[in-house]
Each structure stands twice: as structure tokens, then as C-alpha cells.
Amino acid sequence: MRGYDGDSRLGAAELGTDLGERATLVQFSSAFCAPCRATRRVLTDVAAMVPGVAHVEIDAEQHLALVRELEIDRTPTVLVLDAAGHVVRRAAGRPRRADVIAALGEAVGPA
């Protein structure tokens, strides 16, 4: 997962649900994306392991304006948001569990 140098901030209005208390894993998916299913399992598992972390899956085809705004060009794409909704990391393709956990450490900071 790479750092994100933009100043993007997402909230409940864009995501359709509340942010996690400590961090949010946002997954952009599409209907016929096999890696999206594997990514969903990884993110769901990691979110369950870390208190205050939410996993939100967004159908890229149903949210084209947001996809264009965030320059999402493939699925799955994962954004890691801090508690305020700032994008701190992003990755395209199926992420490794260890990379997601490391990115969450950056978003959450010290417990």
C-alpha cells in the first residue's frame, strides 16, 4: 500500500455510512471482480481484529462521480482513512493482510 499525497477527506455523505471510530477501510469493487471477493475477506477480517475500524465496500459502477474524483482506475482499490476521514494510504489490486495491518497502524497511531 502506498502513501497518499492528496488532501482527500471522505465522510458519511460520500461513503453512505459512518466512519469507523479509529479508521475506515474503503474498498472500491465491481460486480465481476474476483480479486474483490478476496479483498473483502481480508478487509473484513482485519477490521474485526482492530477495535474501532470499519470496512466499507463501494460499488464503483454505482458511484462514478466519486470514482472519478478519487482517480480510482481499477478494482479492487482500497483506501485507508484515519478517524477524520483523510486518506492516508491507498492500494490497487488485492492487498496483503500484513500491508493492510501496517497501513492501519499509520492511520490509527498509538493506541
Rank of each mutant, 00 (worst) to 15 (best):
M1Q: 07
M1S: 09
R2H: 10
R2M: 11
G3F: 09
G3T: 13
G3Q: 09
G3N: 08
Y4I: 10
Y4R: 12
Y4K: 08
D5L: 13
D5S: 14
D5I: 14
G6W: 01
D7G: 12
R9C: 08
G11H: 07
G11M: 04
G11E: 07
G11Y: 05
G11S: 08
A13W: 11
A13S: 13
E14G: 03
L15F: 07
L15T: 01
L15A: 01
L15D: 00
T17S: 12
D18E: 15
D18S: 14
L19M: 06
G20N: 01
R22W: 06
R22E: 11
L25T: 00
Q27S: 11
F28H: 02
S29H: 12
A31D: 13
F32W: 15
C33E: 07
A34P: 14
A34D: 13
C36I: 05
R37F: 15
R37A: 14
R37E: 15
A38I: 12
R40E: 15
R40L: 12
R41H: 15
V42L: 09
L43R: 03
L43V: 06
D45N: 12
D45C: 05
V46C: 08
A47S: 13
A47F: 06
A47W: 04
V50D: 10
V50E: 13
P51G: 10
G52C: 05
V53L: 05
V56L: 02
V56H: 02
E57P: 10
E57S: 12
I58Y: 02
D59P: 03
D59T: 10
E61H: 10
Q62W: 07
L64S: 09
A65K: 14
L66I: 08
V67S: 04
V67A: 04
R68Q: 13
R68V: 10
R68W: 08
R68Y: 09
E69T: 12
E71L: 14
D73A: 14
D73P: 09
P76D: 01
T77F: 00
T77D: 02
T77H: 02
V78A: 03
L81F: 00
A83T: 00
A84L: 13
A84Y: 07
G85Y: 02
G85W: 01
G85E: 04
G85I: 02
H86K: 05
V88H: 00
V88Y: 01
V88E: 03
R89I: 01
R89C: 05
R89S: 05
A91T: 10
A91L: 11
A92G: 11
G93C: 05
G93P: 02
P95W: 00
A98T: 10
A98V: 10
A98W: 02
A98D: 12
V100D: 04
V100R: 02
I101K: 03
A102M: 06
A103I: 03
A103D: 07
L104A: 03
L104C: 05
G105R: 07
E106K: 12
E106D: 15
A107W: 04
V108L: 06
V108F: 04
